[in-house]
Design a protein around this nucleic acid. Sequence first.
RNA 1: GUCCCGUUCGUCUAGUGGUUAGGACUCCAGAUUCUCAUUCUGGCAACAGGGGUUCGACUCCCCUACGGGAUGCCA
Length: 461
Amino acid sequence: MIRVRFAPSPTGKLHLGGLRTALYDYAYAKNQVGKFILRIEDTDQTRFVEGATENLINSLKAMGLNFDEGPTFQSQRLEIYKKYALQLIEQGDAYYCFCTKEDLDVARQRQKELKLPTKYPETCRNLPKEEVEKKLQEGIPYVIRLAMPKDRDFVISDKVRGKVKIDSSLLDDQVILKSDGFPTYHLAAVVDDHLMEISHVIRGEEWLYSTPKHIFLYECLGWKPPIWVHLPLILNENKSKLSKRDGDFSVGNYLERGYLPEAIINFVALLGWNPKSEKEIFDLQYLCENFSFKAVNKAGAVFDEKKLEWMNGQYIRKKPLDELAKMLEKYFVDAGIDISDKEKYLKVIDVAKDYLVRLPEVVQYSQMFYKDLEFATEDFELLNAEDSQKIFKYYFDNLEEGADYEQFVKEASAKLEIKGKAYFFPLRLALFGNSSGPNIPILIDVLGIDETKKRLKNVLN
RNA sequence: GUCCCGUUCGUCUAGUGGUUAGGACUCCAGAUUCUCAUUCUGGCAACAGGGGUUCGACUCCCCUACGGGAUGCCA
């Protein structure tokens, strides 16, 4: 049974990198008819952010990534981790450490100065049993550290990177249980992944180097390790890991700015994976059906919003008109525009959709259909020109409800003997408030005969 | 500093020893006989560098460079 988990820590909103991991988790689970599980890794009390868990869950739901199990909260499983930490001590695979933060800072500082690898000096690794007992008795704060083996190569067999060899002598005696009784990631993740029967650990590349510690833990506890899958990172423009500093990359932020969930999914899926074909526009179902780790890239991918914008436009234009219209309603309501005339509203959206990159822009592209036009002083030169006035007059006198507007526009041009820009610009300016924009017949159709004439009258001298 | 991972157009990528190195975004030009947008067509643009291996390397090996990650009682 394939079981994968998405295990974020509630230290902030779900961002694009996290979404991509969740997406691949989900796609793989569905592809293999397995389970997609959510686990909240809230083991750092100091970094906990209020509302982060809710944001994580809501964002996943908004993207259509529904989990089959969970969320499980690690903070509610403290006893379990402690039990295994003590078992490891019992077995001699872990030990109590009484070093203070200051001790460690000093040691690290000195190592840096000597240009040595910064590592825990193992001060407490071989403390006599009696001394340990005494300190515990005295209530001196402690952590539990893993006693990493020496001179041994760990080989990670990774689904996207192949075999990676790491010499254990470089590895630190990692803290697995903190002095506040909470486990660190290393212990908690291993214990939970085993207990939750996770078959594939899919996570960011930043975890690759600590994987030997996890492999060692599996060995000590006599458990079968999962299959490792380390995903490449998503990078910002400066090619470093996406972080808060470079702006708001949260899923919620993109949704608010008017990107469609299906566009975000499609785009993020392509950051590190591709269907081995030239198909680029696809939905979540297609991703699930075609996903495999073989097609996952090794190199990090720079996030380019320009392409997301293009893709969003593609999805906007693909949406059925009534659905799109419904989605856009709120923007008009917010702008105080009355869209109660549904027939007109649909026509407006049909015109505006070709201009949209992001949803909220709809107002700026269609408010001219609703609001009274305001002309700039330089507009009046064109509006008042002799030919312009002739056109307006002709339209005002001859345009009739239900006429073939396209036909009418052509005929008028012929009769007035005015064509090209000299003909269309003043008309568009009068009807739309701008010399560039949609075609005149469409403008007349959307505005309706009454409003069209009203606008013509308004510019007629 | 040390270790790990990576490196094809500006960006996302296809490519698994023999290709005119393909596609997409961006940009530019043209068409849709008014503009803008859409759409369509075309164009610019890449194998980090150096050594091997081979009849033949973008593809395999080594070195260098560059980029990233890790090096926390953070995940």
